[in-house]
Design a protein around this nucleic acid. Structure first.
Length: 425
RNA sequence: GGAGAAGUGGCAGAGCGGUCGAAUGCGGCGGUCUUGAAAACCGUUGAAGGGCAACCUUCCGGGGGUUCGAAUCCCUCCUUCUCCGCCA
């Protein structure tokens, strides 16, 4: 959510910056509502002041044992006018709030202008894609060949876009999550957290999923709860409504969780394999920081995610999302894309974003600033990494001619020393 | 699931129809004292919004109601605690 003061003071400027991310702000409507709000608010407050004043006089009169009937008559006809004014004010403020909740974040100055994914700016490439001397398979052929990855059974027990893993491959999936958590907690200073996978609407609103992306979420009918699309939601919302001590910052949390996404509107995309699933695991890093620090922290956070890929020796590149491709709540986002031999392309495996005060304002997450006044914190998060996609990357990059998969050295301790995942039967 | 108790400012904790945005303590900030610090003492200290200066409005778990007037009364929901039941 943007600061309404900013909209009041520089509406045109905000509209211009939002246009860069392909959002059209209805300037005229906002202006009209603000005008209306001002009038109704002034009138309402005048009526309230009159009521308060007269009521106080009634109290004083009664305390002295005087007759207050005249005063009471004076104020009794205020009631209806006041009620109408208050209701009107509430209505306008709700409309303004709705508009505000639907406005995306302003892109940071360092974000390149662009209209689509094609305009994202490559920052660096790390590692060289391996040269294969045999025809490469994608993870689906590899997994099914090993009889350890099964989409048919998954769709029987649930529906499309789910998967079943078995044996060493399931363990490799678990090993990846463990490895990531261990690196982030022991080397990058994050506190491991375990959080609810079902959250309420306030939390969804806090991080920006609601109201705009309600259709993308799985809802538990009747309970007012929603399956989390990322651990970002429960973890970031831990500080919702809090006023933190300045010395508590930065807060660094890491959580491993399943993520649930309806993938509405991506019906034709990535239908094969486990690239795009309704359920996937992710290790998520979240930082709650002082506003002055957030852009330095974004670089650090990105480095923490990259460290995982480096330790697994997977080739990747980093891109800065352009203004047209950046997410709703983010001011700046780096994507990390891992090389997938099966697709001969780089695919997103992590997204690291600075939300500045956008989420903090929705959540009212603050800290006591230098002058003793509460100030909004900045929030950031990054995948570190998407576990399912990392598994895909490991399978495809570490495949052998016989269809087996070499276990990356960094993971062998988590696999009981196993060096190769091969078909057993 | 059943019975009871409670939810007040950063924290603890009074208030239970009128002058209460709210006593008191702790914490925070400023000052006196001190070479410095601690202690002691004095002062100050909630948030949001409107004019943006005086001032005004709103907020005592959320929502609704009664009243000229509600932190205080009523309804409802949520949360926490205690006891019983059930369960991994």
């Amino acid at each position: 959510m943007l600061d309404i003061q900013l909209l009041r003071s520089d509406l045109e400027g905000v509209a211009k910056r939002l246009a860069a991310r392909r959002f059209e702000l209805d300037v005229a409507r906002f202006r009209a509502l603000e005008q209306e709000r001002k009038e109704i608010q002034t009138r309402t407050q005048e009526l309230q002041a009159r009521r308060n004043h007269t009521s106080k006089l009634i109290g004083q009169a009664k305390a002295k044992g005087e007759d207050a009937a005249a005063l009471m008559a004076q104020v009794s006809d205020l009631g209806d006018d006041l009620k109408r004014a208050e209701a009107g004010l509430e209505q306008v403020q709700e409309k303004l709030q709705d508009i505000l909740l639907g406005i995306p974040n302003l892109p940071h100055d360092s974000v390149p202008f662009g209209t689509s994914e094609a305009d994202n700016a490559e920052v660096r490439r790390v590692g060289t894609p391996r040269a294969f001397d045999f025809p490469v398979k994608d993870h689906v052929d590899l997994g099914e060949g090993l009889q350890m990855l099964d989409f048919t059974t998954a769709s029987k027990i649930s529906q499309a876009r789910f998967s079943v893993m078995r044996g060493p491959l399931a363990r490799l999936h678990r090993a990846l999550a463990q490895f990531m958590l261990d690196v982030h907690t022991s080397e990058h200073g994050y506190t491991e957290t375990y959080v609810p996978y079902l959250v309420n609407a306030d939390s969804m609103r806090g991080t920006g999923q609601f109201p705009k992306f309600q259709d993308d979420q799985f809802a538990i009918e009747g309970d007012g709860l929603y399956l989390i699309p990322t651990a970002e939601v429960p973890v970031t919302n831990m500080v919702r409504g809090e006023i933190l001590a300045p010395e508590a910052l930065p807060l660094k949390f890491v959580a491993h969780s399943p993520c649930f996404r309806r993938e509405a509107g991506s019906y034709g995309k990535d239908t094969r394999g486990m690239i795009r699933q309704h359920q996937f695991d992710k290790v998520e890093m979240v930082q709650i920081v002082h506003p002055d620090q957030s852009y330095q922290v974004l670089e650090l956070l990105l480095g923490h995610a990259e460290a995982i890929l480096q330790r697994l020796d997977l080739p990747y590149r980093v891109v800065t999302l352009c203004s047209g491709d950046i997410g709703f709540s983010a001011a700046k986002t780096y994507d990390i894309e891992v090389w997938l031999p099966g697709q001969e392309t780089y695919r997103e495996i992590s997204s690291c974003s600075n939300f500045e005060a956008f989420q903090a304002r929705r959540m009212q997450a603050r800290f006591r600033g230098e002058k003793g006044k509460p100030e909004l914190v900045h929030t950031l998060n990054g995948s570190g990494l998407a576990v399912g996609r990392t598994l895909v990357a490991v399978m495809e990059n570490y495949q052998n001619a016989d269809g087996s998969i070499t276990v990356p050295p960094a993971l062998r301790g988590y696999m009981g020393g196993l060096e190769r995942v091969a078909r057993t039967a």
